[in-house]
């Protein structure tokens, strides 16, 4: 595991991640520019939020995976919804982005990297979108293989029937 200090340019990387997320969203929604995406995000457009959140989650997961060989896979999930709730419409819109990271071991170093990412992304997000800085952009729950096998805590979501998570990265 690399030390947190090695993530020295995380602020710059956070800007790149968010920029790429805007571009991904623009492509998916066939919008003219990232500015159009920002406008949609300011309006609280659920579809734009969904695509941006997915892209941010994917990029963060890839980055964590590259930093830490201990990580096996990463998933996003909609914390706020049960299958019935999903009928009510607003799935995937609200921040923070909920990410489950499946690692061989839960380490303090991984938690520290995640916190660094979260702070940097929240700050950059506020700069790009405007308004108050969100307290958190990421909610990362780390599970180990025992959690997944025994379906303990968030480990249960990886094989959930009613509330499945979506894999965004795998080693």
């Amino acid at each position: 595991m690399s030390e947190v200090s090695e993530v020295k340019d995380v602020a710059t990387t956070a800007r790149v991640v968010l920029t790429q997320a805007m571009e991904y969203c623009a492509q998916k929604m066939q919008l003219d520019s990232s500015q159009a995406v920002i406008d949609r995000l300011r309006e609280g457009d659920g579809e734009a939020c969904g695509y941006c959140h997915y892209s941010v989650a994917k990029q963060v997961a890839e980055s964590l995976g590259a930093l830490d060989e201990n990580i096996k896979a990463a998933y996003i999930y909609d914390y706020d919804a049960t299958p019935e709730d999903l009928c009510f419409g607003e799935a995937g819109r609200a921040l923070p982005i909920h990410l489950i990271v499946w690692a061989e071991r839960k380490t303090a170093a991984l938690n520290a990297v995640v916190e660094t990412w979260d702070r940097a992304l929240a700050q950059r997000y506020a700069e790009m979108i405007g308004g108050h800085q969100p307290a958190h952009l990421l909610d990362v729950q780390v599970v180990d293989s025992a959690d997944v096998e025994k379906r303990i805590g968030y480990g249960a979501l990886l094989s959930s029937l009613h509330h499945p998570s979506l894999q965004v990265w795998k080693r």
């Binding site: 299958p83 009928c87 799935a91």
Partner: peptide, 8 residues
Amino acid sequence: APDVNTNA
């Protein structure tokens, strides 16, 4: 009806 990843 809607379910996981589907909506109105």
